[in-house]
Amino acid sequence: MSTQYSAAHSFNKVMEILDRYDRSEEKIIPILQAVQEEYRYLPQEVLTFIATSLGVSPARLYGVATFYSHFSLEAKGKHIIKMCDGTACHVRGSAKVIDAIRERLKLTDKKITTDDMMYTFQTVSCLGACGLAPVLVVDDEIHGQVTPQQALALIDKIDAEEKENA
């Protein structure tokens, strides 16, 4: 995703997504998936707009959006870090990595996005890459057998890049 983020482009995209799925109530989930891909989360105003377009009540759409953990109603950071805490990763020490990342980014299990909107850190339950456990995903790039030190080094690297581009 380009960092030059155009809201206008996104809104046009929402309309295109709605058209692509025939504005059909039955296709709520693929519509929400596609919209989330565009915005990185489901903004409330966009949800209301989709509800109006599909002729469903906003409360129903909110219900669908909150049922699936895939959907997020909160804005996420620019960089998304996911740590697997499934059984295999857990026994191989994912907890230590999780603690280290949270401490570094000043996050908790409830507060998952940094105040400067730079990072979102989430735990997930199994990425299906148990052979690489413990697994860390940084902006869709998978890192296997990570240690706390390696994880922090990856964050350092992003920080340095961001500084350079600033």
């Binding site: 009540s57 906003p58 409360a59 129903r60 219900g63 049922f67």
Partner: peptide, 27 residues
């Protein structure tokens, strides 16, 4: 009207207005 619906899942499931707003703020 559908001012309220189920939101969340599992232990978190609850009857909610859109976006968890109060009934006075929705339809």
């Amino acid at each position: 009207i559908g001012a309220i619906d189920f939101a969340g899942r599992g232990l978190e499931v609850n009857v909610s207005s859109a976006y968890g707003k109060s009934l006075a703020q929705v339809d």
